[in-house]
Simulated scan of single mutants.
Amino acid sequence: MSFDYHTVSLPGGVPPQSTDRVFLGTLYGVANGAGAAGAAVNVPVTGLNLPAKYNVVVQPGQDATWFATGKTQSGFTVTLNPRLAANSIAAGTIDITITA
């Protein structure tokens, strides 16, 4: 069971980008392809309606690093890299959290 809270605290010295709302979205089970040893895999995420500025956090579910590029208000691209050059990215799914 969840509890509704109506107060949001921001750290001091960090001006809010938006003073009237907090944006939070989660995408579960976004499919990603497989890659060869040491190769990156790009996962386009499109068809969204996002604020102008936002943050992306990815849970790849495997031994990989990630970053988001090409951020627009309609989507972005997540790049998955194997942490070790001898490893590869396995086909599967990633979970994405978007905050603003």
Score class of each variant (00 low, 15 high):
Thr7Gln: 15
Pro11His: 08
Leu50Ile: 13
Asp63Ala: 12
Ala86Ser: 15
Ile89Asp: 02
Asn87Arg: 12
Thr99Val: 05
Gly75Asn: 09
Val43Tyr: 08
Val56Cys: 10
Pro11Lys: 12
Phe67Val: 02
Gly35Leu: 12
Gly13Ile: 03
Ile96Leu: 07
Phe67Leu: 14
His6Val: 00
Gln59Phe: 07
Leu24His: 12
Val41Phe: 10
Phe67Pro: 04
Asn42Cys: 01
Pro60Ile: 06
Gly12Asn: 11
Phe76His: 02
Thr7Arg: 13
Ile94Cys: 07
Thr97Gln: 14
Leu24Ala: 13
Asn42Met: 04
Ala90Asp: 07
Ala86Cys: 08
Ser2Cys: 04
Gly47Asp: 07
Val43Lys: 02
Ala40Gln: 14
Leu50Gly: 10
Gln59Cys: 08
Thr65Arg: 12
Val22Arg: 05
Val58Tyr: 04
Pro44Thr: 08
Ala91Asp: 06
Ala100Lys: 02
Gly12Tyr: 09
Thr19Ile: 06
Ala68Ile: 07
Asn81Ser: 14
Asp63Phe: 09
Ser2Ala: 14
Met1Cys: 07
Leu10Trp: 09
Thr46Cys: 04
Val56Phe: 08
Val57Ile: 01
Asn55Pro: 00
Phe23Cys: 03
Asn81His: 11
Asn32Tyr: 06
Ala86Glu: 07
Ser88Gln: 09
Ala85Gly: 06
Ala91Tyr: 01
Ala37Asn: 14
Val14Asp: 05
Thr93Lys: 12
Ala90Leu: 13
Val45Ser: 04
Thr77Asn: 14
Gly47Phe: 07
Arg83Asp: 10
Asn42Ile: 07
Gly92Gln: 01
Ala34Thr: 00
Val8Arg: 09
Arg83Thr: 14
Gly92Glu: 07
Gly13Ala: 03
Asp95Phe: 01
Gly75Met: 13
Pro44Tyr: 13
Thr69Gly: 08
Pro11Asn: 09
Thr7His: 15
Arg21Trp: 02
Asn42Tyr: 04
Ala64Leu: 03
Lys53Ala: 11
Phe23Glu: 06
Val43Gly: 05
Ala91Gly: 01
Pro82Asn: 02
Leu84Ile: 02
Thr7Phe: 00
Ala52Pro: 11
Phe67Trp: 06
Pro51Asn: 03
Val45Met: 03
Gly70Glu: 13
Gly35Lys: 08
Leu10Cys: 02
Leu80Ala: 02
Asn55Glu: 11
Val14Gln: 12
Leu84Pro: 05
Gly75His: 06
Val57Trp: 03
Thr19Gln: 11
Leu24Glu: 06
Gln62Cys: 00
Thr77Gly: 10
